[in-house]
Design a protein around this nucleic acid. Structure first.
Length: 469
RNA sequence: GUCCCCAUCGUCUAGAGGCCUAGGACACCUCCCUUUCACGGAGGCGACCGGGGUUCGAAUCCCCGUGGGGACGCCA
């Protein structure tokens, strides 16, 4: 059978890290098996769905490089189909009208909770052989409920959690169409998964409780249309925030696009997410393509995973070091632009990046660290006081005048500094540190001669003189 | 409350009854490299939630407990 997986977000917000991982795993499973990955937008909640959210999800998927083979499909465009299926269920007797009002249901729920029972629809309008239904009230528009089996158990072999069995007595007759006629989530999912020929449903484990309902629905549908099959299910555990707390809008849940803004490479985010809850032996660093080749549902951890920014940083640093310099230059130029720093042709940004990429966890850090090449640095006063001492000023002055006439190469610059050091019987840092402070603003930088070579003679002298005079 | 799920270093994880003196990675610490800070290299610290079984043998299988999480909508 050809594998068909899907990612089915509801457009009520951005694509967050949990959704991104679900999408990634679905995508990878399809790729691994040469199958088809489908994007489906579950927008039946008209009140909360927005076109902006749809776009945000599309943007997020694109940034991560999660390309889909089919879709995006929109559930709102499939209304006719849902209504048609509901009618067949009504005709077959596997669905029925229920005239209990919302108020009535709320009261029932409250009472059940108070009695420490699991709140459930009690089946007032469920037709039964020999049962006399109440008189239909005139003022209540009916919902349509699914006639869920009352006996036995629903069971499935979850591909990550193993066998799960739930007694039908735990389930009630769920509403499949609202009073206004629009179908509800569990019903739409079932029709779509079935119509789209989904073979593996890979989703968050907050859906575990929906699964038995969906399987029952599918089985009822299969009695009408025998070609309908129950897919396999894989429920992914959730991702917790850095502090171990559940991610929520108020608490740490951010758009994947925020990672772009914060200076993370999509390769790093993909790699990180892949290792969150899944493993391939001791492998830690691998590409999306490699992941797709290795991916399998057998090596997914069933327990929740805590997000760890430090490990993401480490991976991001790895990918920054490995990135194409040309691509990096383009990105960093934009980031500097957003910081209000325009890039001159000199110094060459690629050289500055090459000098600094090893030490940056994010692209923003990288941009920040080379900003001083293009705008005068803010001198760190503490570092200045510590390193630019009165006794070293004459040495620096002499060095400045010597620098005027040398070839502007790393070697020549190094030789000039070395001369200043030895001729005054000093240690190298004694001269290098004040140079760092004058030229970069702080006490940490790569080799100072390399920095100077890139900065350019004029700028080096200008900055030196600014402090020395 | 009811039902469901989960449980190995601080974190992500390896682990399919003997390969486990529990492995790797991030973080942390030490040392080396060194021109400061990084990078890199070499080491170190550090875990099977508790209790019962099963077995010659349990991190691994079973039961109970504890802890955490999820679901219980005319939301998805």
């Amino acid at each position: 059978m050809i594998v068909r997986t899907r990612f089915a977000p509801s457009p009520t917000g951005f694509l967050h890290i949990g959704g991104a991982r679900t999408a990634l795993f679905s995508w990878a499973f399809a790729k691994k098996h040469g199958g088809t990955f489908i994007l489906r937008i579950e927008d039946t909640d008209v009140a909360r769905s927005t076109p902006e959210a749809v776009q945000a999800i599309l943007d997020g998927m694109q940034w991560l490089g999660l390309d889909y083979d089919e879709g995006p499909f929109y559930q709102m465009q499939r209304m006719d189909r849902y209504k048609q299926v509901i009618q067949t269920m009504l005709d077959a007797g596997s669905a029925y009208y229920c005239y209990s009002s919302k108020e009535e249901l709320d009261a029932l729920r409250e009472q059940q909770m108070a009695n420490k029972k699991k709140p459930r629809y009690e089946g007032k309008w469920r037709p039964e052989a020999g049962k006399v239904l109440p008189a239909v009230p005139k003022d209540v528009p009916p919902v349509i409920r699914f006639k869920n089996p009352q006996d036995g158990v629903v069971a499935w072999d979850d591909m990550v959690k193993g066998r799960i069995e739930i007694s039908n007595s735990e389930l009630d007759d769920l509403i499949i169409a609202r009073a206004d006629g629009t179908p509800t989530y569990n019903f739409c999912v079932v029709v779509d998964d079935s119509d789209m020929g989904i073979t593996q449903v890979i989703r968050g484990d907050d859906h575990v409780n929906n699964t038995p309902r969906q399987i029952n629905l599918l089985k009822a549908l299969a009695e009408i249309d025998s070609t309908i099959i129950v897919p396999q299910y894989a429920h992914l555990s959730m991702i917790l925030g850095n502090d171990g707390q559940k991610l929520s809008k108020r608490h740490g849940a951010v758009s994947v696009m925020q990672y772009d803004e914060d200076g993370y490479l999509p390769e790093a985010v993909i790699n990180y997410l892949a290792r969150l809850g899944w493993s391939h032996g001791d492998e830690e660093v691998f590409s999306k393509q490699q992941f797709a080749e290795w991916f399998d549902l057998d090596h997914i951890t069933p327990s929740a995973a805590q997000f760890n920014t430090e490990k993401l940083n480490w991976l991001n640093n790895h990918y920054i070091k490995a990135a194409n310099l040309e691509v990096l230059a383009k990105d960093i130029t934009q980031r500097l632009g957003r910081m209000g720093i325009a890039i001159a042709t000199q110094p060459a940004i690629k050289e500055a990046i090459a000098l600094y990429r090893d030490r940056a966890n994010t692209l923003n850090e990288l941009a920040q660290s080379i900003a001083y090449f293009y705008s005068k640095p803010q001198i760190d006063e503490v570092a200045k006081e510590k390193h630019i001492t009165a006794d070293i000023l004459p040495v620096l002055n002499t060095l400045a005048t010597q620098l005027v006439s040398i070839d502007w190469t790393v070697e020549a610059i190094h030789a000039a500094i070395e001369y200043a050091v030895t001729s005054n019987a000093l240690k190298f840092p004694k001269v290098a540190m004040p140079l760092r402070v004058m030229l970069t603003g702080g006490a940490q930088s790569p080799s100072i001669d390399a920095v100077m070579a890139i900065l350019g003679k004029d700028e080096v002298l200008a900055r030196m003189n600014m402090t020395l005079n």
